[in-house]
Amino acid sequence: MNQVNATKMEKRMNARIRKNNLLKGVFLLATLFGLAVLAILLVRVVTQGAAWLDWDFITGRLSTSADRAGIMGAILGTMWLMVVVIPVTLIIGVGSAIYLELYAKKGKLQSFIQTNISNLAGVPSIVYGLLGLTIFSRAMGLGNAALAGGLTLSLLVLPILIVSSQEAIRAVPKYLAEASFGMGATKWQTIKNVILPASIPSILTGAILSLSRAIGETAPLTVLGIPALLIPFPEGLFDTFTALPMQIYYWTLDSSLVKEYAYLAAATIIVLLVLLFLLNSVAIFIRNKFQQRY
């Protein structure tokens, strides 16, 4: 007896193929859903904010009157944060990566530090805020100075940079180090002259990405009590400051009181997103341009 009924099977086959094609469409739509939301978000922000975004807004001081408000203070504050975050994360991030990849003996200590780093990467940013509040603001007495904010954000993004720098170092072919050792170079000479120059494009890419993560962060700054009041422009690391995300936060909160604040927030978001876009473009540029192909 023939167990397989050919006509029946063909019918079912067609149904199965139809189902496959139908769901392929559903999956595509699901993928596009996220992108559609992204598009709506961007369109919303631009339509609300573009009209308010002019030179006076960018260079102006903060004001309670929506017409006269500007965000120069917040821009300067974000800049001061970058002044702290860039050197601190680069030194600690690359230093840790070199230690873990090239000096640490494979063993308990090394895997402990490694596990610790991946756990830190999962700690909510607000918890870093409390760490910063307790240690930098209170114990070290930095209050809500740019330095306190910058150090807090540095700790927050460090795990990202350490891991990406480790990957960059690991990607340098072994034979380059061998060539250097083979000529009698010491370990540090080899690292300084061969391994780091070869991995620096990837390290910088990672550094820029973690920097853009840092300057988009708001939660830790709210914990530090960063104000968005009428404060003078910050002129140094020890000055009280505000930053672009904080400015967006306060204007968004107050938009239920003064409707125009929502537009100011949108205009500030445009500035922040453009800044992030520029940073990411630089990162992609570095990656494509200077990445050595072995």
Binding site: L38, R44, V45, G216, Y249, T252, S255, L273
Partner: peptide
């Protein structure tokens, strides 16, 4: 990469979007 962009938007921007839209 487009999906990655979604992950790169600062959360404060999502907050604004949730509240005002």
């Amino acid at each position: 990469p487009l999906l990655e962009v979604l992950a790169g938007i600062p959360t404060i921007v999502y907050g604004f979007f949730a509240f005002t839209f």
